[in-house]
Amino acid sequence: MVEKKDMRRKLPVFFGLHAKLPRGLGIVLALLPFALLVIVYLTASDIRQKANPQDKLLPPVSKIAKALEKSAFTLDKRSGVILLWQDTASSLRRLGIGMMVSACLGFLMGLNMGLLPGIRGLSLSFVTFISNIPPLAILPILFISFGVGEVGKVMLIILGTFPLITRDIYLAAKRIPKENIVKALTLGASQFGVVYRVVFPQVIPRLIDTVRLSLGAAWLFLIASEAIASQDGLGYRIFLVRRYLSMDMIIVYVAWITFLAFLADLGLRKLVAVRYPWYSPRAEG
């Protein structure tokens, strides 16, 4: 006789494929790496401060707080603006315009390439070619041809993200089942209608997803171009204060950029979930 007790195996809490995390443990586990990072930093900072009170490499929390206060809540004496907000506004404007243009262009290109064999034949190999150019490598060309002003920086973001968005939307449009398109034709859709009234709305959430994933690259290009030639912007500031080894300021700015990027990612994810409930049905039930 088999004992009943043995029939029901207890699932492990943490180890292995079958682990079933209790809710509380899940939260603790998620916070643990953050806590470790803070502890390691504070300890290291403390050790260095004890050895040399002038140390700039790992500033204590008090100095970081002072840097935050100075950059985010005090008027800059020379320019008469609050630096962090000024920098944020400039950077977000560049990022916003760049992403907007590349999202629109990439979407229209990808959609038409995915559905119309003529457009595909014309542009697929060209877009593939363009997407293999490392964008940072042509930054000098952009600065020479578009100047070191706003256009050059926005162009870098566009060139850096547009091919990726185009190819992703192209694949999404191509994945629409043939049956779906034929069905639309039997419902009286024109060819234009199939592209812009049937497939267009189906690919929009995919676009938002792609933009979300491209934002990481966009930040990279933004900060790189601001670091090289700019008068303001988050990237500009970081590379400016680097000259004075102001780690406190750099840490404030990096944390702020990370927070902005996190907010953008979360916002776009929520937008898709709320506005397009049909897009990832697995979330339900």
């Binding site: 089942p177 034929v182 069905k183 639309a184 034709l185 039997t186 419902l187 897009y279």
Partner: peptide, 28 residues
Amino acid sequence: LPSPDRGIVYQRYSLFPHLTILDNTMLG
């Protein structure tokens, strides 16, 4: 080419996933 005088019902993919049932029905 396919046109409205010949309707089609496939085994799958006849419906448009981004539209509600009502919108799917009135799409034609």
